[in-house]
Amino acid sequence: MPDLDLTADVVTLTAAVCDIESVSHHETELADAVERALRALPHLTVVRDGDAVVARTDLGRPERVILAGHLDTVPLTDPPNLPVRRESGRLVGRGTTDMKGGVAVQLRLAATITESTRDVTYVFYDAEEVEDRYNGLGRLARTRPDLLQGDFAVLLEPTDGGIEGGCKGTLRVDVHAGGVAAHSARPWNGSNAIHAAGEILARLSAYEPRTAEVDGLEYREALNAVGISGGIAGNVIPDACTVSVNYRFAPDRSGEQALQHVREVFHGFDVELGDTADGARPGLDLPAAQAFVAALGLPVTAKQGWTDVARFSTLGVPAVNFGPGDPNLAHTDHEHCPEQQIIDAEAALRRWLEDAPTDGEEHP
Rank of each mutant, 00 (worst) to 15 (best):
Val11Glu: 13
Ile237Val: 15
Tyr247Ser: 07
Gly69Leu: 09
Ala193Ser: 15
Glu21Phe: 00
Gly316Gln: 06
Ile163Pro: 05
Leu140Lys: 08
Gln340Met: 05
Val105Tyr: 05
Gln290Ile: 05
Pro145Phe: 09
Leu13Gly: 07
Phe322Asn: 09
Glu128Ile: 01
Val65Lys: 10
Val173Pro: 13
Gly283Gln: 08
Asp98Cys: 13
Glu346Thr: 11
Ala206Glu: 15
Val34Arg: 14
Phe292Gly: 02
Asp151Phe: 02
Leu156Thr: 15
Leu259Glu: 15
Leu91Ser: 08
Asp215Ser: 14
Asn189Trp: 11
Lys168Leu: 03
Val47Cys: 02
Asp78Trp: 03
Pro187Glu: 09
Asp278Val: 05
Asp132Arg: 10
Leu204Arg: 14
Asp355Ile: 00
Gln290Phe: 01
Leu296Asp: 05
His336Trp: 04
Ile237Pro: 02
Ala225Pro: 13
Ala111Ile: 01
Lys168Met: 09
Val214Phe: 09
Asp160Arg: 15
Leu67Asn: 06
Val120Asp: 07
Ile113Ala: 00
Glu362Ile: 02
Thr7His: 11
Ser191Ile: 04
Leu107Trp: 08
Arg351Met: 00
Thr242Gln: 09
Ala250Val: 01
Tyr247Trp: 06
Asp160Lys: 13
Asn321Cys: 14
Gly325Pro: 03
Gly50Pro: 06
Glu115Phe: 00
Gly216Glu: 08
Gly190Leu: 06
Asn192Ala: 07
Glu361Met: 04
His267Arg: 14
